[in-house]
């Protein structure tokens, strides 16, 4: 039986869908069978992020309504056959919570990981997405507003009996952390009292490529570390400040500002 992990945030625009896609790719690269479920029914984007939007015939709504079989709605990512997507393209389709849970349970029987991309906010869509998961990754950015929402989301997850939770801090600027202008991962751990599974640096390439970053980039390394953390339940978290320390680091910070 595979692990069902909901990727959530509370606040919108923190990079939840990109993290879901990047993590899925990284897990598939490590040989895991992964399916990504777009539970953001009204504002779906996972198909677009993975470049599979033109291949969608059936979606989550069709599966829950019995219009098609689960297998017919699943899309395979071209470069990684072990990575699949269950898209959502019916913006007004009302997906039943119980039916959604059954779909996720069916997927978990043949996959190592089912990653559920949760809608922003803590409304019905959030409850539906969380109801099918036993674990949660809360994506946040190192800003006060996103962290406040992440803290509230952790409280809701606790109330919904999702006990295994961890934070993914996205869009961290190593230069700003090193100069004391941005909260560090340690600051965030102190404030939220939660495990941090990953720290992903802000990367213009990642933004433009929607998750699939070239091998060797800081973003790629950070997502790989996150994937290993998810698999093992512990591990190293990427440190985006290391190239900005020391005299050479000061020069890099200055160049970044200039």
């Amino acid at each position: 039986m595979g692990r069902c992990i909901v990727i959530t945030s509370g606040k919108g625009g923190v990079g939840k869908t990109t993290v879901t896609a990047s993590l899925g790719l990284a897990l598939a690269t490590l040989g895991k069978r992964v399916v990504l479920v777009d539970a953001d029914v009204t504002l779906n984007n996972l198909d677009l992020v993975l470049g599979l939007e033109a291949a969608v015939t059936y979606d989550l709504y069709d599966v829950t309504m019995g219009t098609c079989r689960l297998k017919q709605a699943l899309l395979t990512y071209p470069d990684y056959p072990s990575l699949k997507l269950l898209p959502s393209v019916h913006p007004l389709g009302e997906v039943d919570k119980t039916a959604f849970r059954e779909v996720v349970e069916e997927l978990a029987q043949t996959q190592d990981f089912v990653l559920i991309d949760c809608p922003a906010g803590v409304d019905d869509g959030f409850v539906r997405a969380v109801s099918a998961a036993s674990e949660a990754l809360v994506v946040t950015t190192p800003t006060a507003t996103a962290l406040r929402d992440a803290d509230k989301t952790l409280g809701y997850l606790d109330a919904l009996r999702v006990s295994k939770t961890a934070l993914v801090v996205n869009r961290v600027r190593g230069d700003l952390v090193a100069s004391g202008e941005m909260l560090s991962v340690d600051d965030i751990i102190k404030l939220l009292h939660v495990r941090v599974a990953g720290c992903i640096p802000e990367d213009d390439v990642a933004l433009s490529m929607c998750g699939a970053t070239p091998v060797g980039t800081a973003h790629h390394q950070a997502v790989n570390l996150l994937a290993r953390y998810v698999i093992e339940g512990k591990g190293k978290v990427y440190d985006p400040t290391y190239i900005y320390r020391g005299p050479l680091g000061s020069l890099r910070r200055w160049l970044k500002k200039a």
Binding site: A144, L147, S179, G180, E181, M182, L183, D187, L191
Partner: peptide
Amino acid sequence: KKAQWTAERLQ
């Protein structure tokens, strides 16, 4: 520093 100020407010 700005990060410290943010942390205190956020706390």
